[in-house]
Amino acid sequence: MIPLSRTRRGLYRIRQIIGRRVSARLRDMGIMVGDTIEIVSPPPGPVIISKNNTRIGIGMGMSNRIIVEPVGVVDEKNHST
């Protein structure tokens, strides 16, 4: 398990989101613990994640607070909903 700030391009599953407001915000935007997300634009710098045709930009201070684990190699077709 690594923070979002240390990921590469590819698919990851969210294991934990630190901070109540942050997790509430992400949840409202359709991103929750347990979701599989794709890292579209990896760190360093702000990160773009994608789920369900939705892209969300995650700012610098944030990516340390989202803990993920890799679930496979980059495979754009198998990105299930």
Binding site: V22, R55, I56, G57, G59, G61
Partner: peptide
């Protein structure tokens, strides 16, 4: 205090 985090939707 710290800056609130940026979480922003990037529409198509």
């Amino acid at each position: 205090e710290e800056v609130a985090p940026l979480i922003i939707e990037l529409p198509p």
